[in-house]
Simulated scan of single mutants.
Amino acid sequence: MANTPQSKKRARQNERRNDINKARRSRIRTFIRKVEEAIASGNAENAVAALRAAQPEMARGVTKGVLHKNTVARKISRLAARVKAIAA
């Protein structure tokens, strides 16, 4: 347990950040899920639209420090490849 005033404050801040990061991660996963559902349905237009909506949200996760840059780049690349395969 935190003893010093500084460590108590840190613990409070970490708790707040954790809630914010959890919500942001959940939001990103929802966007990714929508893309995957559109891909599964085979609807190319919906898949493209869902991917366009998901990309900035995923990039925002990188800038906020929730996800690693390369992880997001890999996920976007793989999703884009799957969407492109459906469109063709």
Rank of each mutant, 00 (worst) to 15 (best):
Arg24Thr: 09
Val62Ala: 04
Lys8Leu: 06
Leu79Gly: 00
Lys69Gln: 11
Arg27Glu: 12
Asn14Val: 10
Asn70Phe: 02
Met58Ser: 03
Thr71Cys: 00
Arg74Lys: 10
Thr4Leu: 09
Val35Met: 04
Glu36Ala: 02
Ala80Lys: 06
Arg10Ser: 11
Arg27His: 13
Ala81Met: 07
Glu37Arg: 08
Val62Ser: 08
Ala11Ile: 12
Lys75Tyr: 03
Val48Ala: 15
Ala80Ser: 08
Glu15Phe: 10
Asp19Cys: 03
Ala59Lys: 14
Gln55His: 07
Glu15Trp: 12
Ser26Trp: 11
Gln13His: 03
Asn70Leu: 06
Lys8Thr: 04
Arg33Lys: 13
Lys9Met: 12
Ile76Gly: 00
Lys34Tyr: 05
Arg74Trp: 08
Arg17Met: 06
Ile20Gln: 11
His68Met: 08
Ala23Gly: 07
Val48Gly: 04
Val62Cys: 07
Asp19Met: 11
Glu37Gly: 05
Val62Phe: 09
Lys69Arg: 13
Ala11Asn: 08
Arg78Glu: 14
Arg74Tyr: 12
Val35Thr: 05
Arg10Gly: 01
Arg82Thr: 03
Asn70Met: 10
Phe31Pro: 00
Met58Phe: 05
Arg25Ser: 12
Arg17Ser: 07
Ala44Lys: 13
Val72Arg: 03
Ala23Ser: 13
Gly61Asp: 02
Ala59Asn: 13
Arg16Val: 14
Gln6Asp: 15
Gln13Arg: 08
Asn46Trp: 06
Asp19Ser: 15
Ala11Lys: 09
Lys69Ile: 09
Arg25Leu: 14
Ala53Phe: 06
Glu45Lys: 13
Ala49Val: 07
Arg12Ala: 15
Ala81Pro: 03
Ile20Trp: 15
Ala23Met: 11
Arg24Ile: 08
Arg17Asn: 10
Ala44Tyr: 01
Val35Gln: 03
Ile28Thr: 02
Ala47Glu: 02
Lys69Met: 13
Ser7Asp: 14
Lys8Gly: 03
Thr71Ser: 10
Arg82Trp: 01
Ile39His: 01
Gly65Glu: 11
Val72Ser: 02
Gln6Glu: 14
Ile32Ser: 07
Ala47Val: 04
Phe31Lys: 08
Thr63Ile: 15
Val72Phe: 00
Arg12Thr: 13
Lys34Cys: 02
Ile32Leu: 06
Arg16Asp: 12
Ala73Tyr: 06
Ile32Met: 13
Leu51Gly: 00
Ile28Gln: 00
Asn18Trp: 10
Thr63Asn: 13
Arg10Leu: 10
Ala23Leu: 11
Ile76Cys: 00
Ala11Thr: 09
Val35Ile: 10
Arg29Tyr: 08
Leu67Lys: 05
Ser77Tyr: 03
Ala73Phe: 08
Gly65Arg: 04
Ala47Ser: 11
Asn3Lys: 15
Gly42Asp: 04
Arg29Ser: 11
Arg33Trp: 02
Asn21Tyr: 09
Ile76Ser: 05
Ile39Leu: 08
Ala40Asn: 12
Asp19Tyr: 10
Ala49Met: 12
Pro5Val: 01
Leu79Cys: 09
Gly65Cys: 09
Gly61Thr: 02
Gly42Phe: 07
Val62Gln: 00
Arg25Gly: 05
Lys34Ile: 05
Ala53Cys: 02
Val83Thr: 03
Gly65Asp: 05
Ile28Asn: 00
Ala73Val: 04
Ala44Pro: 01
Lys9Cys: 10
Gln55Glu: 12
Asn18Asp: 15
Ala2Lys: 09
Ala38Cys: 15
Thr4His: 09
Lys9Pro: 01
Arg16Phe: 12
Ile76Val: 14
Lys75His: 14
Lys22Leu: 07
